[in-house]
Structures are given as structure tokens and as C-alpha cells.
Design a protein around this nucleic acid. Structure first.
Length: 284
DNA sequence: GGCTTTGTTTTATA
DNA sequence: GTATAAAACAAAGC
């Protein structure tokens, strides 16, 4: 699912292709997705793209910005006349990506120089907010976001968070208010790599285990970014191409298969209301 | 038609 | 107020 590495993959693409483009028009096909007034940003030029946890921010040369959360199934796809040949070379993973706009296209940003940015979302969970830049940190989601891996989460901070919580370790590290960026894939895989039982009470982890987990989570997140994210459900990059991390899952989605670490058979349980994959043999 | 999927978001509880 | 838990929400595939 779109987690830190997937959203970072999108950010890198948007940063590369969108900066310098002017927004000429915005067509909103599903009003529920868009919060704020699109008229406020027509004519603005894109200056940069930032990421906060799983959230994206498109900065403009005006007082406004565009904040986007793609939740489970959102896609941001960039098309450009000049890139047409290149786009065709990108492997298409679902029919829904073949033609744009399609029935899951809810917002269409028409940019200058023949470019278009499509927002697709077949479950329609995502949102696009148009807000004054200074109000970003007052928005829900951004307001309560915790520190994040590979950015502003130090081992010390991580240790403090883990030690003072009585919640099971997996739901804890997936709590965006505590730590931003981890979702079900990377939380499961990181716990397997660190050989820690997802059900353990956070405060029961030793200092050594906390350090192992910190390292393991950074490792799987970096790996996710290197592979361009995991195209498990509907994730694609901004050119509509798929990521490769799903070919490297350690435990996520691998119920009944052998653990790469010890050969134990991976089990699936429900923890904190979410599917949890783990190896009962080596995750202690 | 019920169950499952996820990332918030809201509501309830301690 | 804080921490936690559980339910709700969205749509679609099986």
C-alpha cells in the first residue's frame, strides 16, 4: 500500500516533471475528493513538491499549496506530448492505466506546454486540499503527524516513543501521530527483519531490540524507495509504471510460505484490526 | 451478500 | 488532556 517509499517515489517523479509548469485548468469530476476552491490556484506555477509521512504537498508561486493524500488507491499520473513515446515504454500493470482519463479519474489538472496531471482513485479514499500555505500545519493529518524515518526520527526519539507505550509494537509504529510513514507492508517486513514478535508490548522491548528494529525499519524503507515502491494493489509512479518492492516482500502477503530468515512458515493473524504477517519461528 | 483490504478519522472508553 | 481501542468510512473483488 502507499506508504513512505511509494509516496516518496511519487514525490520524486512530481518534482522532476511538474516543477515549472503552470496550472491552466482543473476539472473536478468527483467533488468529494477536493477540499477548497480550485479557482484559487488556476494560473499558479508549481515550484516544488514535498512529502510529510504519506502526505504530499505541491508548492506554488502563490500563497496557496496543494496537499494530497492518496490513501490506498490514489494515483497521480503525468502525461506530456513530449513524453508520449517514453510513456508507452512504461509497463502498464492494469487496464485502468491504459487510457486516461478513465472511469477512476476524479481530478484533471491541465498544465501548460501540453501536459496533464491526472488524479485517479478507484476506492475514492484520497483527498486533495487547496489551502493557504501558512495553514498547512493546521490541517488535520499534517497537524498531528509524528517524526519520520530517514528524516527527523533519531534512534533516541524512537527509543523514547517505544519505551513509554503499552501498545503492541506493530500498531505503535504504524500510528502516524507517533511515527509517520510506516504502513502495513513495511511494518510487517521490518519486524520480521528485526526478528521481533509484532504482538510484543512496545515497552517490553530491550534497548538492543529497539536498535535492531530501528535499523530494520530504515533498511526496508530504503529498499522500498530503491525498488520504486510496491505495486501491490494499484500503486504506480507518475509515469504509470509499477514499482518492484512487491517482488521482495519478506513476510507481507506471504502466508504459508517459508521465512527467508529461518525457513519457518509465515502466519497471518489480525492485530489492532489489521492483517499481520509474521514468522512464529524467528520473531520472538 | 458478507467478508476483506488499508489509512485515516471519528467515537467511545479508561 | 492523554492514551488506547474499536468502529466507521470509502469501493470493489471474491
Amino acid at each position: 500500500m502507499p506508504e513512505l517509499p511509494e509516496v516518496e517515489t511519487i514525490r520524486l517523479g512530481l518534482q522532476k516533471y511538474l516543477v515549472g509548469h503552470t496550472i491552466e485548468n482543473i476539472e473536478v469530476r468527483l467533488p468529494r475528493i477536493v477540499i477548497g476552491d480550485v479557482k484559487d490556484i488556476v494560473g499558479a506555477t508549481i515550484t516544488g513538491v514535498r512529502r510529510f509521512g504519506k502526505g504530499l504537498v505541491i508548492d506554488l508561486d502563490t500563497d496557496y499549496l496543494i496537499a494530497i493524500h492518496i490513501k490506498m488507491t490514489g494515483q497521480l499520473i503525468y502525461k506530456n506530448q513530449e513524453l508520449r513515446v517514453r510513456n508507452q515504454e512504461v509497463k502498464i500493470i492494469r487496464d485502468m492505466h491504459s487510457f486516461l482519463p478513465n472511469k477512476w479519474t476524479h481530478v484533471i489538472f491541465t498544465l501548460d506546454r501540453g501536459a496533464t496531471l491526472y488524479y485517479n482513485d478507484f476506492r475514492q479514499f484520497g483527498w486533495i486540499k487547496i489551502v493557504k500555505s501558512e495553514k498547512l500545519k493546521a490541517q488535520s493529518f499534517f497537524k498531528d503527524l509524528g517524526p519520520e524515518f530517514l528524516k527527523d526520527l533519531s534512534l533516541k526519539k524512537f527509543t523514547d516513543i517505544v519505551k513509554k507505550s503499552t501498545v503492541a509494537i506493530k500498531p505503535l509504529i504504524m500510528d502516524q501521530k507517533k511515527i509517520a510513514g510506516l504502513g502495513n507492508i513495511y511494518a510487517n517486513d521490518g519486524l520480521n527483519l528485526a526478528m521481533i514478535d509484532s504482538r510484543r508490548k512496545a515497552s517490553s522491548l530491550t534497548q538492543e531490540e529497539i536498535e535492531d528494529l530501528f535499523q530494520a525499519l530504515e533498511t526496508v524503507l530504503k529498499k522500498g524507495i530503491i525498488y520504486g515502491g510496491a505495486s501491490e494493489l494499484s500503486f504506480v509512479n507518475v509515469l504509470g509504471g509499477e514499482g518492484k518492492y512487491q517482488e521482495h516482500f519478506l513476510v507481507y502477503g506471504r502466508k504459508g510460505k517459508p521465512c527467508f530468515n529461518c525457513g519457518g512458515i509465515i502466519e497471518k493473524i489480525k492485530l489492532g484490526g489489521r492483517g499481520t504477517y509474521f514468522c512464529p519461528k524467528c520473531q520472538k
